[in-house]
Structure formats: structure tokens, C-alpha cells
């Protein structure tokens, strides 16, 4: 060993220590492999269950009067329409509020206010969804919605959508705020230097620059809303069946609440029963939809990070 080529290995002297260091590496790699295994198992589970369902069900049963799994009626349109309606209501609540909070924290708020508000948003993100479900049936419907819509059902999609929206606000606010803060200060300085007011800078300069990030926040929030289960199960899903209807004032099950309802009865429906298999078919649909949405959101966020 020539002294002018001293490497880290020379300093580590004993071979035993180096061998231990190498071995540990495999442990860490093994753990990383487990996370890939989790994904593989999820895909295998939903795909094989969904295939069993699709290959056994009469396809005409997938378009019928509603979702009655135990009677062999699996109308997908019912669930998809309800999921879409509730998620759109949720976005109507969460997007203005989440964007507004993000703009306030990023463009207007004093740093001290920001330091308090950011952890508060984190705290809000941890409110259990069952609690919001209870909130929907004990407050949103009886104390608010009945004042405006007298013939509203006790279980209804509108209240479920609003509660899901409340749940998604922190997520949207947090991603949007990151997007706004990623806009370089130089743009704001240049705008202000031209004599623009704060509102002009916010709307004409910062908003367009952060547009793709705000879109990503909306997409990820939408994906979260589609996947939300307990709020819908408590506030709108009701039982394990739902008849096709478009009214927001009526109850209706979504992809997720139908799964929860089937799950509650797994002891009764277990075995090679189609109702049990439909659980995995819905899971596969949900998995595919959220995966696509999240990947699109992810690509947009990444592109944004690389821009400035």
C-alpha cells in the first residue's frame, strides 16, 4: 500500500469491522425489498380477486338498477356516479378554502402567523375520518342543510361530500402552499418593482407561475376524496345496497362504502361467493383510479420542482 493512495479501507484496519459493515447493508436492502413486496402483494390481491369476479359474473349484471351484491346485482354506474358526485362536492369545498389558506400563508401572513398555522394544518390532517362522519350526521345535515333543503334525507350525499371536503382541506392547503413558495422571490420583486399591488402580484404573477402545482394539489386531493371511506359509510352509504339515483339529497353508496359494507359482512359472504369477490373487484378499480391520479400529480410536482 503506497502512502499516497491511502483509502478509507486502510483506516478501518480490522477486516471483521469491514465484514460486519457489508453484512448490515444486506439487512437494509432486505427492508427496502419488503416495501416492494407490499406493493406486489396489494396488486396480486386485488388483481386475482377482481379476475375471479369478472370471469364468473354475468356481464349484464354490471349494469342494472343499483348495487345489491347479495342479490347478484352489481351496477357499477351507481357506485361510480356516487363516488364522482361526492368527490366533486368535496373539491368544491376544499379547493377554494385550501387555495385561499395557501395564498394567505404564502403571500400575506406574517412569519409568526405562518409558524403557528403550518403545524395547525398538520394537526387537522390527523383528525380521524370517523369523527367527521359523526360530524356530518350530527351537525352538517341536521343543523345546516335542513335549513336550506327541507326534504333532505337524513343520510345524504351532500353532507358526506362536505365532510370529505373538510377532511381534504389540509392536504390541498399544504401541497398548494409548497407550490406557491416554490415560486422564486425574484418574480414577486420584479412585479412589485413595476408598481403592482400585492393582489395584482398574487393573481397575475404568483398564480400563473404556481398553476401546475395547484393543479397537482387538486388532483391529489381528488384522489384522496375518492378513497375516503368512513365519512361516506356513516353519512351516506348507509346499508350495503344502493339504488341508482342522481339526487344529492338522497343517500347513496360509493366504491369505498360498498367495500366497507361488504367487509362488515365478510363472515356471511366469505367463500366463493360473488358478493365477496366483488369486494376485490371494487378494490382493484379504486386502486387503479387513485394510482393514475397520484402518478399524474406526482409528475406535475416533479416538473415544477425542476423548473426554478
Amino acid at each position: 500500500m503506497t502512502p499516497d493512495h491511502l483509502t478509507a479501507a486502510d483506516l478501518q484496519t480490522s477486516l471483521g469491522r469491514r465484514i460486519r459493515s457489508r453484512t448490515v447493508r444486506w439487512l437494509f436492502m432486505g427492508a427496502a425489498a419488503v416495501t416492494v413486496l407490499v406493493s406486489a402483494l396489494i396488486i396480486w390481491t386485488v388483481a386475482s380477486g377482481a379476475w375471479t369476479f369478472i370471469s364468473q359474473v354475468e356481464l349484464t349484471r354490471l349494469a342494472d338498477i343499483g348495487w345489491f351484491p347479495r342479490r347478484g346485482l352489481f351496477d357499477l354506474t351507481t357506485l361510480l356516479v356516487n363516488s364522482a358526485q361526492i368527490s366533486v362536492i368535496a373539491m368544491a369545498v376544499a379547493v377554494p378554502s385550501g387555495f385561499g389558506a395557501a395564498f394567505y400563508l404564502s403571500e400575506y401572513a406574517h412569519p409568526r402567523v405562518r409558524r403557528v398555522m403550518k403545524p395547525t394544518l398538520e394537526l387537522l390532517a390527523s383528525v380521524p375520518s370517523v369523527v367527521l362522519g359523526v360530524f356530518a350526521i350530527s351537525f352538517i345535515t341536521p343543523s345546516i342543510l335542513t335549513n336550506f333543503f327541507s326534504d333532505i334525507n337524513f343520510f345524504n350525499k351532500l353532507a358526506a361530500g362536505i365532510a370529505v371536503g373538510l377532511l381534504v382541506i389540509p392536504l390541498i392547503a399544504s401541497i398548494s402552499e409548497d407550490a406557491l413558495r416554490a415560486v422564486p422571490q425574484a418574480l414577486r420583486e420584479a412585479s412589485a418593482g413595476l408598481g403592482a399591488r400585492r393582489v395584482t402580484t398574487s393573481i397575475r404573477v404568483v398564480l400563473p407561475a404556481a398553476m401546475s402545482g395547484l393543479m397537482a394539489a387538486t388532483i391529489v386531493g381528488f384522489s384522496r376524496a375518492i378513497g375516503e371511506t368512513m365519512v361516506v359509510t356513516i353519512a351516506s352509504g348507509g346499508g350495503d345496497t344502493s339504488l341508482y339515483n342522481l339526487s344529492l339529497y338522497e343517500s347513496g353508496g360509493t366504491l369505498t362504502s360498498a367495500m366497507a359494507a361488504l367487509g362488515l359482512g365478510t363472515d356471511q359472504v366469505a367463500g366463493n361467493n360473488l358478493a365477496f369477490q366483488s369486494l376485490f373487484f371494487l378494490g382493484a378499480l379504486l386502486f387503479a383510479m387513485t394510482l393514475v391520479l397520484n402518478m399524474v400529480g406526482d409528475v406535475i410536482v416533479r416538473r415544477l420542482q425542476n423548473r426554478y
Binding site: 407490499v38 402483494l41 396489494i42 380477486g49 378513497g227 386502486f287 387513485t290 397520484n294
Partner: peptide, 28 residues
């Protein structure tokens, strides 16, 4: 390449709805 797969995989897992994990639990 393995690290990139793990990273992508983690990002996707983070967005999987919780009830889908229930299916994993039930089946596996």
C-alpha cells in the same frame, strides 16, 4: 435501478386508499 424502483414504489404506496390496505390484510 433497484433504489429508483423502491422510491417510486414508496410514493405510490403513500397514495393508496386505506381501505385497499384492508383488502391486503384480509387476503394475505
Amino acid at each position: 435501478r433497484f433504489a429508483r424502483i423502491v422510491e417510486l414504489n414508496i410514493r405510490n404506496l403513500a397514495g393508496v386508499p386505506s381501505i385497499v390496505y384492508g383488502l391486503l390484510g384480509l387476503a394475505v
